[in-house]
Structure formats: structure tokens, C-alpha cells
Design a binder for these strands. Structure first.
Lengths: 204, 204
DNA sequence: CCTACCGATCGGTAGG
DNA sequence: CCTACCGATCGGTAGG
């Protein structure tokens, strides 16, 4: 008899083992612990509990692991920016939406974003990813400029370095935020937004 | 005849070559480009234009290069914190002094701080350096708490994650600030301090 | 005939 | 500061 749910629940033939997603996830953890270059396929195989060659069943090369991992971070971030650009609100509202969304994606895709933020640009693949990051910097600094022109945020700060500083604070979250820590994701998001928009000084 | 200025200007005997400081400086540039683990002593030798073994004339091991480099960042930062702790002013003044000094040291010791900020804690040396970093986080969060208790800064933000976010913004400077860029060091320092204390919103 | 994986080994390069 | 090496490990592929 033919099963009608083979598409969503494929019949498992052959050996049960890893799927690509899990291999990728474990690979990225290893890359973040030891660095991409310093993580050999042998060490990664040990971590997976399979042979080195077996990894090549799931992914054609080490570089493809990196490419897949970076897309896990870049695609959600770029989709979010598309959303921001379609958004109808004021520049300040869009700026806040951009920053809040970034915090959320950082937390949801922590390991992948960590990898992205530590790229050095020594291969073509890394340089392409860094260029996509720079495009996001540009989008953010443009939003800062627009909000300044609308008088919604202070105008005495240069937009490009402001964008860098905003990203600097928010991106640092991947280095220290833990889901099981004392502060939940929503509180952290509000905390960062308050600090960025209103600063340390109390309201007067 | 004995020279009286051998201490400040030692007579150069033997082959002219690198001093340890220059080897260290070039090594750190290489570490930052490719990662410490991924930078082989062979590649480093090529960069220096000397043989691999010749490096071992200047420094006993690869790990010693890392130790020396990390101290170039850690020692100035720790001295600065000692100064802050001796300072007589209010908690808010000391907090501002701490943050301003950190920006200055980051710019002055950019390459060394970059190396420090990218540590992963996979060796005892790295874990020790990370512990010294965490002690600085603790000192900063204590200053935040004191300034909150004095009512000089807003009290609705948790001090530890506030300290992380402050450091996050400031530390990002090593990733993008260039001395030959469009913004000078003093302007950047004031820019960051304004953003942290007063936020993006205009004064009302 | 499939997926998932193995033991062994390729030519080169690592830190010391 | 060099040449000549060491034990080990690198990313990737073979046949089964």
C-alpha cells in the first residue's frame, strides 16, 4: 500500500543517521569554539561520532559547511531588511524595528551569527559574506540619516559611525547572552533599545 | 671605552634584525588576519622574511607570542581601572572616565585588543586572559550599580547586562575604526559617550 | 537498489 | 639567523 504522507513524513529506508541540518549545527558549534580554519574535518568527525569521509555524504566540502552556515544568519537578516524597506512608518519607527528585529535574529540564530561576525575575509566566500554585512551597515546608516532629517533623532552624530556603534552594542549580544541566563530575550531587547534611544541618563 | 648610554641606546652588535617588539607586532597582525591557531610559524616566518626557526631566537614558543600580545592589551586596561578606583569623583564621573579611557586604549592598542576580544578560551593561557577580561566586566558593572544608587543614571536597567552592552558598543571600535578614516579619535570618543549617556533621542 | 557510513590512504604542511 | 629534519595531522577520496 502506498502511504499518502510520504512527503511530510518520508519512509525511513537505509541507516538512520544525521541529516544535513544537524551536521551543520554541530559543525558551527565546533567552528565557533576553535575557529573555522582550526577545525579539521577529522575533529568534526570525532564530534559527530562518524568517520571523516561520512561527513562528505552530507556536504561536498568544508567550505560548503561555511557557506550554508553563513546563509543561516544572512538570509533572515536580509529578509528583515526587506521588510523594513516595505514598512510604512516613520524613519524612527523603522529604525527601532530594524534594531529590535536584529536582536531577535541574533538570539534565534546565535551560533550562525557568531560565525558571521568573526569572519576575516581571507577567501572569496568570506569576502562575499562580509560584503553582504557591509550592505546591512549601509542600510542602517541610511535609516539613521533619514531619522535625523526628520528630526526624530539627534543630528550631532555622524550617521555611518553611529550605525557602527549601534550594531556594535547589539552584535555583542551573541558573545554573552545565554537563553538560560538571568535575563530573558524580551527584557534584553527592551533593555538595549532603551539604552540606545534614551541613554544612561535618567529622563528629566 | 664603556658607553654611558647603553641602557637607552644599546650598542648594536651582531646582525641587524628584528627586535622582539616588531616581531610581536607583525605576529599579532597575522594572528588577527588568519586567527591564532590558523597562523603557522611557517607563514609567520614568510611574513617576517626570516626562517621559521629564526623566530625562536626572539620568542621561545608560539604561545609566548600570544601571551606577550595579550599583555599589551590587558596591562594598560588594568592600570586604567586602578586609576579609576583611586579617583575621587562621583560614580558617574568615574564611569565616564572608565568608558573614555577604554576607547583611548582600544585605539592605541587596536591590534592587541582585537586579539584579546577574539579569544575562545581553549587553552589555559586563553582562559586566564578571559578571566582578566571578566574582572573588568565586573568592575564596570559595579560602577554602573554605584552610579544607579547615587541616582546619576537610570535605575531601570540591570547593571551586569548594561555593562556588557556598554562594552559591546565600545569594543566594536576595534573592528571598524581606522586612524586614517573620516572621523578622528577624539570625535569618536565624544560620539560614543554622547550615545551611551544621552541616547539617540534629542534633548528636550 | 538505497542511505549511511567504514578503514585506509592520498599529497602536503603543521609546530618545534 | 639557516638547512634539515621529526611526529602528527591536514582536507579530501578510494573501494566496498
Amino acid at each position: 500500500m502506498e502511504s499518502t504522507h510520504t512527503v511530510t513524513q518520508p519512509a525511513k529506508r537505509g541507516r538512520p543517521g544525521y541529516d544535513q541540518e544537524t551536521v551543520l549545527q554541530i559543525a558551527v558549534e565546533a567552528f565557533n569554539e576553535h575557529g573555522y580554519d582550526a577545525t579539521s574535518m577529522g575533529k568534526l568527525a570525532d564530534r559527530l561520532g562518524i568517520s571523516k569521509s561520512a561527513i562528505y555524504h552530507h556536504v561536498p566540502s568544508k567550505e560548503d559547511l561555511l557557506r550554508l552556515a553563513l546563509d543561516e544568519a544572512l538570509i533572515p537578516l536580509e529578509s528583515m531588511i526587506d521588510e523594513v524597506n516595505k514598512h510604512e512608518g516613520s524613519a524612527e519607527e523603522r529604525l527601532e524595528f530594524f534594531l529590535r528585529s536584529t536582536v531577535r535574529i541574533l538570539i534565534a540564530k546565535r551560533a550562525y551569527v557568531t560565525l558571521l561576525l568573526r569572519l576575516r575575509g581571507n577567501t572569496e566566500l568570506e569576502r562575499t559574506a562580509l560584503q553582504r554585512r557591509r550592505e546591512m551597515d549601509r542600510q542602517l546608516s541610511e535609516l539613521v540619516l533619514l531619522a535625523q532629517q526628520d528630526g526624530q533623532i539627534r543630528q550631532d552624530l555622524e550617521p555611518r559611525s553611529t550605525a557602527r556603534l549601534l550594531f556594535g552594542m547589539i552584535n555583542s549580544v551573541v558573545d554573552w547572552y545565554r537563553l538560560d541566563g538571568p535575563i530573558d530575550a524580551v527584557t534584553l531587547e527592551n533593555h538595549a533599545i532603551t539604552l540606545l534611544f534614551d541613554g544612561l541618563h535618567p529622563k528629566h
